[in-house]
């Protein structure tokens, strides 16, 4: 596999800063939660979560970060924004779920780091190609996951797309275009 720069959230300095500032920043997003549970009742994926969204906010405010990071709840957020829309306190709950994904990628255990790979490999493909190359992204994702069964899950879809002429290797005119922007963002995020 093409070894390039590490994904943005795993650079050592950014990692350290996430440890220091991450929790407080997320707590600030949900500080005025009144535990009404509208978020949980509105979430289409709540049935598969080990902690209800409402419980996540409470645990965060208690500072019980490890309990939250051991749950799989935030990885099940599909960013539908229904909770954000309905929260009677107007809290940006979808953004809080995304912030937890970033925190878990930086601070979480091996399971969390592996779940973050999907997003990191996606962004690495974007960094290299300017526009996402779906085929190349899925291939590098399969490699990063070290799971030989995973590609099989995608075989039916892959064959369908192949039959429709939808599997492209991409044009590549924007290849490298985003390199300077990614590098700049990386340096800004490493800044103390």
């Amino acid at each position: 596999m093409n070894k390039t720069k590490p994904p943005i959230s795993l650079t050592p300095a950014a990692h350290q800063r996430t440890l220091d500032g991450g929790l407080v920043a997320i707590q600030d997003l949900v500080r005025s939660c009144m535990q009404c549970g509208t978020c949980t009742a509105s979430c289409p994926n709540a049935f598969a979560m080990d902690l209800a969204p409402r419980q996540v906010w409470r645990l965060l405010l208690y500072g019980l970060t490890q309990e939250v990071l051991q749950s799989r709840t935030f990885w099940l957020c599909s960013a539908c924004y229904t909770c954000t829309l309905r929260c009677p306190r107007g809290l940006p709950l979808t953004a809080a779920m995304a912030a937890l994904k970033r925190l878990a990628a930086a601070e979480g255990d091996a399971v969390n780091r592996k779940k973050a790979l999907f997003y990191q490999e996606f962004m690495r493909n974007v960094e290299q190609n300017g526009r996402i190359q779906e085929m190349g992204f899925m291939c590098s994702y399969f490699l990063a996951m070290h799971n030989p069964m995973l590609p099989l899950e995608y075989t039916p879809l892959g064959l369908k797309l192949l039959g429709k002429g939808k599997l492209h290797l991409g044009g590549g005119a924007q290849r490298g275009r985003l390199g300077p922007l990614f590098a700049k963002v990386r340096s800004m995020e490493e800044r103390p």
């Binding site: 994904p7 943005i8 959230s9 960013a79 953004a95 995304a98 912030a99 994904k101 970033r102 990628a105 973050a116 999907f118 997003y119 990191q120 996606f122 962004m123 974007v126 996402i132 990614f182 963002v185 800004m188 995020e189």
Partner: peptide, 11 residues
Amino acid sequence: ASAAEPVSRLL
């Protein structure tokens, strides 16, 4: 897409 936010807020 929906992949940037779980990686970097600024990006």
